[in-house]
């Protein structure tokens, strides 16, 4: 083989040096290069690729999802790998294009993903996702005081305000909906537009520092940040807790049975639902998810998210 490569290489060299860059596209490269690992071929041992919207610090995601991968691998007896993505929309696209098999989506991204990939299945959600909340937060020195009613959100007019990701349910979609009900338009914020920090952790850091007067984050991340000291009430205060709505959920491709064997999907769901704090590794996973356990999820429950998504223009 080595000699063949050398000969082929020599032929290439002699043919024309200028052709060199084209060769990866040609038959020579096909002979020389093995199929890349990521290529979608009916491999002998299929790998379950899991992903997640990057809603928190990469460092935390990189701790949590490899744990999930190893646990699922142990439970299901297949190879499981975690594929990180750079933003929410990329997670949806990667699911649509078949680069991801099982994804931890938010409410909005989950609806987007299912609309774009018919046949995709809602697998599970956390106990806290049935009735999830957003917390509006403000910099302690900004002079913004906690409010008791939704219509008082008008205090945010003329302030520097940041959402999380553009496609975040708890960090953008539902907050924007609550703001618009209170009569606050996006152009009412200082600078003529809100910021999009990208993730909940970043929103907390930016509002704490004073880069923004106020922002909005998901309740679970907020509680965790207060608990582990990354957020301090001396710098950032909660000002309003939103009404509840359904949020995060696991979504799987519709064709998993065809690729991993009959009945795979119906084994996947009980596997996730079976995670309990009594098992050390599962306890760690549940703690990082901020949940006691996972429950079955009903696709119909996200009808409200879809409706708001359409009104705000994030779903078409």
């Amino acid at each position: 083989m080595a000699r063949r490569r050398a000969v082929l290489g020599l032929i290439g060299l002699l043919a024309s040096p200028l052709l060199a860059p084209m060769l990866p596209a040609g038959p020579l490269a096909r002979l020389l290069a093995p199929a890349p690992a990521g290529a979608q071929q009916p491999a002998s041992q299929p790998v379950l690729r899991i992903g997640a919207i990057p809603d928190q610090k990469p460092e935390k995601l990189n701790r949590l999802y490899p744990l999930v991968a190893s646990e699922l691998s142990r439970q299901l007896g297949v190879k499981v790998s975690y594929v990180p993505v750079v933003d929410y929309a990329a997670a949806v696209s990667a699911f649509r294009t078949g680069n991801l098999d099982l994804v931890w989506f938010g409410g909005l991204t989950g609806v987007q993903a299912r609309l774009q990939k018919p046949g995709a299945r809602v697998i599970a959600q956390r106990d806290i996702d049935v009735n999830f909340h957003s917390i509006f937060i403000a910099n302690a020195r900004s002079g913004i005081k906690p409010i008791s009613q939704q219509k008082e959100l008008v205090v945010l007019k003329g302030r520097r305000f940041t959402f999380g990701s553009e496609s975040s349910t708890s960090g953008r979609l539902m907050p924007q909906w609550f703001l618009s009900q209170a009569g606050v338009k996006l152009s009412d914020f200082k600078g003529g537009a809100p910021g999009f920090s990208g993730s909940h952790d970043t929103t907390i850091a930016l509002v704490s520092s004073g880069a923004y007067d106020a922002g909005v984050v998901n309740e679970q991340v907020w509680r965790t940040s207060l608990h582990d000291g990354r957020a301090s009430r001396e710098k950032v205060i909660p000002i309003w807790k939103s009404p509840g709505y359904p949020d995060y959920h696991w979504i799987a491709q519709g064709d998993l049975d065809a690729r991993f064997g009959k009945g795979f999907t119906s084994k996947l769901q009980p596997a996730i639902l079976a995670w309990r704090p009594s098992d050390p590794q599962q306890k760690q996973i549940l703690a990082l998810f901020g949940a006691q356990q996972f429950t079955e999820a009903d696709a119909a429950a996200y009808g409200r998210i879809e409706q708001v998504g359409r009104q705000i223009g994030k779903i078409r």
């Binding site: 040096p17 060199a20 860059p21 990866p24 596209a25 020579l28 020389l32 290529a39 609309l115 018919p118």
Partner: peptide, 29 residues
């Protein structure tokens, strides 16, 4: 310029660049 040939092939190999992937279009819903 001739050195570019083996270099390009090696790099393409290492990165897993597979031009065939360009042919597999995913439908836009």
């Amino acid at each position: 310029m001739a050195a570019l040939l083996p270099l390009s092939i090696g790099v393409a190999w290492a990165l897993g660049v597979d031009p065939r992937a360009l042919l597999a279009w995913q439908p836009l819903q």
